[in-house]
Amino acid sequence: MSTPSRKRLMRDFKRLQQDPPAGISGAPQDNNIMLWNAVIFGPDDTPWDGGTFKLTLQFTEDYPNKPPTVRFVSRMFHPNIYADGSICLDILQNQWSPIYDVAAILTSIQSLLCDPNPNSPANSEAARMFSENKREYNRRVREIVEQSWTAD
């Protein structure tokens, strides 16, 4: 079945394969173009360096007019990521635009890692630590990075 959203997702996939931005990868699950697995690598020279964080992206037939639901599967410690892995990011909510493809979504999430917005906290402990105790915050991030290697 070829709907506008499925056709668009095929092109998103093609672009991601041909011209992958540094530090991200993603692909639809077998037989289901509407559900994607993705990996974001922690940016170099940051506390996130070396982490491999897994996510899922669930699309609907409204894509690209509506954003996908994106969740981290890996455990995270970040001011804008909820305990269930869902992400507080404007372009995934009210600032969504069809201009963003999967590559752009993943790139935005990757830059959110090092550039959190502590004023809209999803994890208040992480937000407080980020503003008040950067040392401890960085230590917790390193822990998460190490966990990302062992978790399945």
């Binding site: 672009r15 069809p98 201009i99 493809d101």
Partner: peptide
């Protein structure tokens, strides 16, 4: 610098 496929359907 917009990718064609992000706007061509529209």
């Amino acid at each position: 610098g917009y990718a064609d496929f992000t706007f061509e359907d529209f």
